[in-house]
Nucleic acid binder design. Structure first.
Length: 487
RNA sequence: GGCCCCAUCGUCCAGCCUGGCCCAGGACACAGGAUUUUCGAUCCUGGAACGAGGGUUCGAAUCCCUCUGGGGUCACCA
């Protein structure tokens, strides 16, 4: 059995895309499950749009989610170079082979003529297709054009009749009439190959056994099949994964969905969760579980369980899943993640955070500064910086005038406590509530506002322990003062 | 528009290949309840789908056909 070799082949033209991680995940999982190789190939044949920054970001993001490749531009390998812009000679030589075998031809048509041609075809409601003007140029004409230095492209000569078919591993037989296929440009006038040529040549030379890519490529696969045939090469297995969708079912896009992996990182999503979420798109674990690690997915993976319907990318479920992952973290790991993501660049002491983090663990869904602050900013400011509406201090169904005296008594009881621990505090609160005829919950809320300035907080008593007695009492004092205004 | 792909709860999936165990199961979200010092987490309960029409069959979510719907693609972009 041949060694499984798969590749993910992003084009470095912008932010790293979730779709790349999605396809990469299945490449990776399949390769690992079959003891194969996972390769990263950079398809930078579009000279105007490709940038080194984008390539860098793609590699960093793929590593961030945890998909490490065995061969690639940075780590090398026996089938390099892995950057298409460095393989120009290879494509030129292969184009030459095709030209000599008359499987391809030079086309001297100008872009202007082609645009005009398509406009005409559209007007006449004909399918837009190259009209074949240069298909049968005489050798002399070609020589002339060449010596005049006219720019040209090389097109694949598609047989005018017949059918092309291929078997997709998860979809079955796909067949199409060659009339439907255009004489695809293989080599652009700038000497660079198009996706189609480079892709086929590289997949063959790199001995790729399974071409895993998105559904949007199905319609160009017949061209690739014809190319393999023209070269006389063995065909890889084709597997077209379903396309990730927006809510309106269209192909996932920037305008309707966060699509950049950088965004997910910034938002504080855990890469494990993102990958797990992606693993549930189009694939399902054999026992139905939805939370699984990469290794578990590898152990259970099979193409039989890959579906063909395009899943809507619904971030709501990702949020839930991320929350599940967050809650599984140990206090130490939780603290580390917070420090390196939500709190990156802030001066927060690790020891103190180690005590706070567990209190907010089940209250945040991701490691964003927003969520962290919403939950715990009161820990990081002084008593005098605490701002809130004094009205909040008064519980429902109590006389506003009673609030200040109640807080005053509470402060005294707190101050008299032998130990600044949760149990004595709770006892004191309940006892006082009883004495003044308040519901315990009301007194809790009153103190909560006094100490945190918020209605929704982490557990109050634990928070006060962390704040310390002095700080807590100071906040009580300020609250008493504010409560005077309620009279 | 041509061609191609797809079609189960609002969403993600299971079931379909090898018809009956499915008046369709799980998860997210939503609603209600329990618990609780708030929020959250947790637990319980609930509503919620086989696109339509024809076949085949004793029997169809499952097989076949048509229609409808959605999507992709038709570049010297990938």
């Amino acid at each position: 059995m041949k060694t499984v070799r798969v590749r993910v082949a992003p084009s470095p033209t912008g932010d790293p895309h979730v779709g790349t991680a999605y396809i990469g995940l299945f490449d990776y999982v399949f390769a690992r499950s079959r003891n194969g190789k996972f390769i990263l190939r950079i398809e930078d044949t579009d000279r105007t749009r490709s940038t080194p920054e984008s390539e860098q970001a793609i590699m960093e993001s793929l590593r961030w989610v945890g998909l490490q490749w065995d061969e690639g531009p940075d780590v090398g390998g026996d089938y390099g170079p892995y950057r298409q812009s460095e393989r120009s000679e290879i494509y030129r030589a292969h184009t030459q082979m095709l030209l000599e075998a008359d499987k391809a031809y030079r086309c001297f048509c100008t872009p202007e003529r082609l645009t005009e041609m398509r406009d005409r075809q559209r007007k006449e409601k004909l399918p837009p297709k190259y009209d074949g003007r240069c298909r049968e140029l005489k050798p002399e004409e070609i020589e002339n054009n060449l010596s005049e230095g006219k720019p040209f492209v090389v097109r694949l000569r598609i047989p005018p009749h017949g059918y092309v078919s291929f078997t997709d591993k998860i979809r079955g037989l796909v067949q199409i009439a060659t009339e439907q296929i255009d004489d695809q440009v293989l080599l652009k006038s700038d000497g660079f190959p198009t996706y189609h040529l480079a892709n086929v040549v590289d997949d063959h030379l790199m001995e790729i056994t399974h071409v895993i890519r998105a559904e949007e490529w199905i319609s160009s696969t017949p061209k690739h099949v014809l190319l393999y045939e023209a070269f006389g090469w063995e065909m890889p297995q084709f597997i077209h994964m379903p396309l990730l969708r927006n809510t309106d079912k269209s192909k996932i896009s920037k305008r309707k969905n966060p699509v950049s992996l950088l965004w997910y990182k910034d938002q504080g999503y855990m890469p494990e969760a993102l990958l797990n979420f992606l693993g549930n798109m189009g694939w399902s674990f054999s026992d139905g579980r939805e939370i699984f690690s990469l290794d578990e997915m590898i152990a259970d993976f099979s193409w039989d369980r890959v579906g063909t319907t395009g899943p809507v990318f619904d971030i709501t479920k990702l949020d839930w899943m991320n929350g599940m992952y967050v809650r599984q973290l140990s206090p130490e790991k939780l603290t580390s993640r917070l420090l390196e993501t939500a709190l990156a660049g802030r001066d927060v002491g690790r020891e103190r955070l180690l005590r706070i983090a567990p209190l907010i663990q089940e209250r945040i869904t991701k490691f964003s500064a927003e969520e962290f602050d919403a939950m715990s900013d009161f820990f990081f400011i002084g008593a005098d910086q605490l701002e809130y509406d004094p009205g909040l201090l008064a519980p429902k169904k109590t006389e506003p005038a009673d609030v200040a005296p109640a807080l005053q008594k509470m402060r005294e009881r707190f101050d008299a406590l032998d130990a600044w621990e949760t149990q004595p505090m709770e006892d004191a609160i309940r006892a006082l509530a009883d004495e003044i005829g308040w519901k315990a919950g009301s007194l809790f809320m009153c103190v909560r506002i006094a100490v945190t300035g918020r209605k929704a907080t982490p557990p109050l008593l634990e928070s006060m322990v962390i704040l310390g007695k002095d700080e807590s009492l100071k906040r009580m004092d300020n609250a008493i003062e504010k409560a005077q205004a309620l009279l």
